[in-house]
Amino acid sequence: MEKLELRAEVVAPGDLLARDISNGTYTYLDGGEVKASVFGLKDIKKDSVSVIPLAGKYMPKAGDMVIGVITMVDRNGWEISINSPYPVFLQRDRDMDPILNPRRLYKEGDIVSVKIKSVNEMKKCYAEGPRKLRGGRILMINAKKIPRVIGNRKSMLGILREKSECRVVVGQNGVIWLDGPERNVQMVVDAILQIERESHTKGLTDRISSVLDKKMKVIKEEENGRKK
């Protein structure tokens, strides 16, 4: 394996990041010193310093789109497990027919994507805008690597979708849903796992792009061969 270049300095909890600068995410103030509170990559900007974590559980945030599994149904609605310490609750619509069995909409085991509507102090979460995801394939990766899978202004996700000709839905909680021809889906899965492994390195978008190009070329050639 070639030696990959780190895109930023790796820091551990307690490492001093900077002095007299505002502290960003995953850092804390100790006197005038900004220190890392997680294991990750140092991210220094003009007026603040933060850490990009390399591990950790997904913490629900209002506005996030997540993918999860229905784990419980009762007359109030549905509980969805989202690979986080906190499940999200989807409340039954007020104008829904009270006699209707909620399981006819979503039942235990269904995979849904929802938007997180609110999170309270005790991390109780409510969701809205459910969509059932049928068929396809589910992939679960470290939630902290999702920003890399999406990329700057969705650049990475755009490449994945466009080059593979697959449908790709990315949940902020590390759950990804894919649909398309089997070989294409496998190609995207491999690419995403590579992003997860190499998220701390430089030049990742270019590497992924060229890997996908190569693989697609093989797929296309074989398809054309079969047609002839």
């Binding site: 551990a12 909890p13 804390y28 509170s37 997680v38 591990a55």
Partner: peptide, 8 residues
């Protein structure tokens, strides 16, 4: 730390 748990 390896688990990404926030620590001082």
């Amino acid at each position: 730390a390896d688990a990404g748990v926030p620590m001082r």
